[in-house]
Design a protein around this nucleic acid. Structure first.
Length: 428
RNA sequence: GUGGAUGUAGCUCAAUGGUGAGAGCGCUGGACUGUGGCUCCAGAGGCUGUGGGUUCGAAUCCCAUCAUCCACCCCA
């Protein structure tokens, strides 16, 4: 057992698994680009103040989960815990309002939160997300939801559900909070200790408590829909209209409230049944107040963030998690050689094949021919080129098809062409 | 930060307080001196997480610590 291990809550993605990651990232990029979103790459650390003001000073993230340190000049720096505030910061800093609106951006990258690790939760995790900044149009809310869903659909994932809600705006939300507190007032004794605390700090959180008793109580409480102002009501209707137009299935779930302060109006989550307690694949919403929180002028925006680790977990759960017949190394051709002169020839051949875009490899362990064949098989090679003294002498290599076992003789000169699929192949 | 479970070979796991800690898979080699998958044989690989303690004797019992897993809180 190695004495040096990856820090708590972090992990290595080994080559076996990285294929899956690359697939997820590829789908994200394709779906985003098709919808007119360009990639933004913001720093991995920011001034601590950005998150204190953006995410909200009384959120759990800011209160206890940030990786914060002083740099050598005494500045307070924080490893980013989320991607939306940095995107908005970049929008304001670079005056992106001077560009055609809305500005649509996506990102993929690591986020950091000092939390106790558990299934689906890490101290460094990777999020992909999109932000559409500069327009209050409910069509954008729906677009953003559909982008997230499309990513999962294109990954072949099923068994996920879109939960949709609205949490109003600074005009109507306080009225609802008040009504909520009043409605629960008679049952405070029945609430769990966490919820009693929530009641004071953030009453909406009582709605998504997992405790049975709390759920029963909050189930009988008025929903926010009765308290929405006209603007929020029509915005929500707009969002649902557009979602229906897309034929996108969703469930209105008055319990989802989200934990970051900047959300207004639309909030949503995509949950997956097979993920355990941390079942949220991704979530997001509208944040029309964020720009002002950061000292900019009023600028509406919507977006989401989703966890790549969780997407990968869901994909693994779906395929029964049987990497089994080892995904292979992606090698198509293996060049087996015997003797030093043949190895030099093989080394050149491998280089030539790679130049032609054929993934190939040869032995580096001084293995016997037999062992090289075995190795080639395990690597998943489709063809093996055998080069020995005889082949060198006659300038004709033996090519074995690993699935049929058939062998053919191919002149060295035409080998690259045959193996790269250009020529019909076979000879002499 | 809180609660529970678990730490033995690269992986999955055995071993009543009592010889030199084992097996399967994987890895390397051989049977087959130039031919993979199947089979058989062999080899390499361990400070039993770490540090204390109890004991004639500890992988095993006790304490501490670290780590992992699961759940809470919260979130991706």
């Amino acid at each position: 057992m190695a004495e040096l291990k990856a820090p708590r809550g972090t992990c290595d993605v080994l080559p076996d698994e990285s294929d899956l990651w690359i697939r997820v990232e590829g789908v994200v990029r394709r779906v985003c680009r098709n919808a007119g979103y360009g990639e933004i790459r913001t720093p991995i650390f920011e001034h601590t103040e950005l998150f204190e003001r953006g995410v909200g000073a009384v959120t759990d993230i800011v209160e206890k989960e940030m990786y914060t340190f002083l740099d050598k000049a005494g500045r307070s720096i924080t490893l980013r815990p989320e991607g939306t505030a940095p995107c908005m910061r970049a929008y304001l800093e670079h005056n992106l309002k001077t560009r055609p609106q809305p500005v649509k951006m996506y990102y993929i990258g690591p986020m950091f939160r000092y939390e106790r690790p558990q299934s689906g939760r890490f101290r460094q995790h990777t999020q992909f997300g999109v932000e559409a900044i500069g327009s209050p149009d409910p069509a954008l809310d729906a677009e953003v939801v559909s982008i997230l869903v499309d990513v999962y659909r294109h990954l072949g994932l099923s068994g996920f559900v879109v939960h949709l809600n609205t949490i109003g705006c600074p005009r109507c939300r306080p009225r609802y909070k008040e009504a909520l507190v009043k409605a629960v007032a008679g049952w405070v004794e029945e609430l769990c200790s966490d919820c009693r605390r929530r009641l004071e700090r953030n009453p909406l959180r009582v709605l998504d408590c997992k405790n049975e008793a709390c759920r029963e109580i909050s189930g009988n409480v008025p929903t926010i829909f009765e308290f929405l102002c006209d603007e929020c009501r029509s915005h929500f209707e707009g969002v649902t209209t557009y979602l229906k137009a897309l034929g996108l299935a969703y469930e209105i779930d008055p319990r989802i409230v989200r934990g970051l302060d900047y959300y207004t109006k639309t909030v949503f989550e995509v949950v997956h049944a097979e993920l355990g307690a941390q079942d949220v694949l991704g979530g997001g919403g509208r944040y029309d107040g964020l720009a002002e929180d950061l000292g900019g002028e009023h600028t509406p925006g919507v977006g989401f963030a989703a966890g790549i680790e969780r997407a990968v977990m869901a994909l693994k759960a779906a395929r029964g998690d049987s990497p089994g017949a080892e995904a292979g190394t992606g090698i198509r051709v293996f060049v087996a050689t015997m003797g030093a002169p043949a190895r030099v020839e093989g080394f050149r051949l491998v280089k030539a094949l790679r130049e032609r875009g054929v993934p190939c490899d040869l032995d580096y362990m001084e293995r016997s021919l037999k062992a090289q064949m075995k190795h080639a098989n395990r690597c998943g090679a489709l063809k093996v080129v055998i080069l020995g003294e005889e082949e060198l002498k006659t300038r004709v290599a033996t090519v074995k098809d690993m699935s049929t076992g058939e062998q053919s003789q191919v002149a060295l000169e035409g080998l690259v062409q045959v193996l790269s699929g250009d020529g019909p192949g076979t000879a002499t």
